[in-house]
């Protein structure tokens, strides 16, 4: 038993879990903003695939990581505009239009990859930046403060998004619109504009998540995300629509996955049960949801299109 615990509670697993958690966290934070305004976006995975491909392609051609990150944000923005128009102005059914975005992203990124790249080639990946002093701290220093810029950024966004939602006028508008768009609208808060902007923020972060994922790996493959975006959406419910909760969920998911890998690497999980072990993150998330659910309330107007009459 002790060896299991030793394996799990190690610097390497912590660092690995944080790396795995980052794309979930970025996409989940974006989805939180969108859902707080009452818009469910199931297309996150598709947006991530598109932004991941275009970021990769940009770096492949121009060899500039920052340009790649910029492109991933831009792709998120374009997809955000599309999704906002579809859901806010055309008042389309949110769950299903999200599936449309997902299919488009999955197919189009695959198509573009096959046509323009073909054989996987590596680009340079985001370098780790050791934070002076902090990274020299015993044990935790190595695990927490020796990552790429995007990872620090993702975790710094947690308080930032929380502040945005809680302290700013825009954040208050978002929450009001997510609870009761009619009431908010009658008080002079444009529900449509608020949702539009919230969706843009959400998709930009999803785009960034795709960029972070691909530039961390340094290589793209069709269906790179393997459904990561869908799990990110689930983690928003898990996190009870709070940025800190989403962070906990993302870390839980990443750390469980990393722990399972480490236990397998140390041959502590019999090989014949490797698939059962691979279920762990999903099963634990459901279990956590069962424990947590019922105690929190979703934004009342979530998935309800708003129509001004």
């Amino acid at each position: 038993m002790l060896e299991y615990l030793e394996a799990i509670f190690s610097v390497a697993v912590l660092a690995s879990g944080i790396r795995l958690a980052t794309p979930y966290l970025l996409a989940g934070l974006g989805e939180t903003v969108g859902q707080r305004s009452g818009v469910l976006n199931l297309g996150v995975d598709g947006v991530m695939q598109l932004s991941a491909f275009f970021a990769y392609w940009t770096v492949l051609v121009h060899e500039n990581l920052w340009l790649g990150i910029g492109v991933s944000v831009l792709v998120g923005l374009v997809m955000g505009i599309i999704y906002a128009i579809v859901t806010v102005f055309f008042e389309a059914q949110q769950g299903i239009s999200g599936i449309g975005i997902f299919l488009f992203g999955l197919g189009f990124s695959d198509l573009m990859f096959q046509k323009n790249v073909g054989t996987p080639r590596f680009v340079k990946s985001l370098p780790d930046v050791r934070i002076p002093v902090l990274s020299d701290l015993p044990v935790l220093g190595e695990a927490l403060f020796s990552h790429s810029v995007v990872i620090y950024g993702a975790f710094l966004l947690v308080p930032a998004v929380a502040w945005l939602l809680r302290k700013t006028t825009f954040g208050m508008n978002v929450r009001a619109v997510g609870e009761n768009p009619q009431a908010a609208d009658s008080l002079g808060v444009s529900a449509q504009r608020t949702r539009f902007i919230a969706i843009l923020i959400g998709n930009v972060l999803a785009g960034l998540a795709g960029g972070a994922l691909v530039l961390q790996l340094g290589v793209f493959q069709p269906n790179l995300t393997q459904g990561l975006g869908f799990i990110a959406v689930a983690l928003v419910y898990f996190g009870a629509w709070r940025p800190s909760g989403v962070m906990v969920g993302a870390l839980l998911y990443g750390l469980v996955a990393a722990s399972v890998l480490q236990l397998k690497a140390l041959q502590l999980i019999p090989r014949s049960y490797s698939d059962i072990a691979a279920m762990a993150p999903a099963v634990l998330t459901i279990a956590a949801l069962v424990i947590l659910a019922g105690r929190v309330k979703a934004p009342a107007a979530l998935t309800r299109p708003f129509a001004r009459h």
Binding site: L20, L217, A258, Q262, S274
Partner: peptide
Amino acid sequence: IVYTGSFGDVALAAETAQA
């Protein structure tokens, strides 16, 4: 020997190598 459980999950393969 680690079987990640997926033919497509590049990120998981990367973390396995790291481990």
